[in-house]
Computed example of a mutant assay.
Amino acid sequence: MRIRQRCGERARKRADRGPSGLSLLPWLLMGLGALSHLLGGQAPNPWIGAAGLLAFNTVYIAIVFRAFDRSRRESPLTWGLLVTLGLLTFGLAIGYGREWLLLFPLLGLGVGAVVRRGRLLPLIAFPLVVAVGAVTFWRDGWGSIGIVYGTFISIMVTAAILALDETVRELRETREELARAAVEKERLRFSRDLHDLLGHTLSVIVVKSEVVRRLAPRDLDAALAQVADIESVGRQALTEIREAVTGYREGSLATELDRARDALSTAGIEPVVRRSGPLLAPQTEALLSWVVRESATNAVRHSGASRCEIALSGSADRVRLTVTDDGRGPADGTPGSGLRGLRERVAAAGGTLDSGPAPRGGFRVTAELPVEASVPPEGDPAR
């Protein structure tokens, strides 16, 4: 099984690398006709022909290996080598004739591998094919029409296949990058949800535990009632965490207002809840639920307030939630990570969230949203 997995991994790696210059080397066999012409003693100036054929093969190999590295393919050196290959091909074809005309399709492979796509391809391919046709007709007449066609096909097919392969690899890289970004967004979403869920729940449990400690010596029944509340809060937190993990948690604003009222009362803070305005879309309610939860949790944990007012109002298009307490606010005057995360979520839904000292003292959190907010999946507080 492990051997099969390793073979599969090696095959995937080879597929990711794509073709290389080695895939174009077998086509050099098309030059065997020119080589046999030299070895048969039929070519004039055989030493010049041999040197030219050696130079042609060397330049062709250099081009095809450079063509599969984008930075090297687009360098002036590669284009200089391509021009050199063209001069060698035309020179050998004009000087030696028929058997050497098969070098033209090899030139086409080199051109297709380097140019590949864009407006430059037809500007190079068509004049080159015309020039090849002129030379081949002069040296071999109509019998060389296959050479012209083969040169054209080698240019266009090589360029198309390699451009398609390059595009597929770019799309694969883009898909992998998007997958990595999606994972990072999901991690951020989960960390925010976990922070908001546990921060609120643990704050309520701590406050109720302190009440139990104070009540136990003098009123056991009341202390037991608080213990039952702690158990209920813990069970509810477990349910919410499971839902957050699966990504399908939906916040109910009415439920969250009741929880906030209970948590504030337990902490000795007088809750005042005012709600008016139109019916809200589920996404908007869910997002406002997070604002209520985070603001109430901060009031319980940090404010030292005696009164906290939660006001919800709105018009036909916008809804406004304000949470104001008469406490001291954050110790350093700056909002915590919970409020910063909420600000990003509200902004992604087309709204605004402001927090800071209230005009008459205390701390205020104000969120404004469209009545039907559109929450992006990666920032959806309902998930």
Rank of each mutant, 00 (worst) to 15 (best):
I61D: 03
A11Y: 04
E210I: 12
F65D: 01
A228L: 12
P359L: 03
N298W: 09
R6E: 15
T58G: 10
R189G: 04
V129E: 05
R345K: 12
L25H: 09
V64Q: 00
P376T: 07
K185M: 08
Q226W: 10
V292C: 04
R275M: 09
E177W: 09
E250H: 14
D317I: 08
G247Y: 05
V346K: 00
L109C: 11
G110D: 04
F68Q: 04
A286W: 02
G247Q: 06
Y60S: 00
R117C: 05
A299T: 15
R249I: 07
T158K: 03
T246K: 13
P44A: 01
A43M: 08
V323L: 01
L220E: 15
A305D: 00
T239S: 15
G97I: 05
V183M: 07
R340V: 13
A93S: 14
V83H: 13
R360V: 12
H195D: 14
V207I: 06
G52W: 03
L35Q: 15
W27V: 12
A281W: 00
K13G: 13
S154N: 08
V300S: 00
L32C: 12
I155G: 02
F363G: 04
N298V: 11
A113E: 04
D140E: 11
A263Q: 04
A222E: 12
K185C: 07
D16M: 13
S154I: 00
R169L: 08
R213V: 10
Q236A: 15
S232A: 15
E240L: 12
L353I: 02
T352I: 07
Q5R: 11
G41F: 04
G143Y: 10
Y149G: 13
H200V: 06
S355Q: 07
V375Q: 08
R242N: 14
G41T: 03
I94D: 12
V233S: 02
H200K: 11
G333H: 07
V245N: 08
L22Y: 12
E256K: 02
G31I: 06
L38R: 06
A263S: 05
G268A: 00
R259T: 08
G40V: 04
E9C: 05
A347V: 09
S203A: 15
E256W: 03
E256V: 01
A225E: 14
F363A: 05
V114Y: 01
S36C: 12
H200R: 13
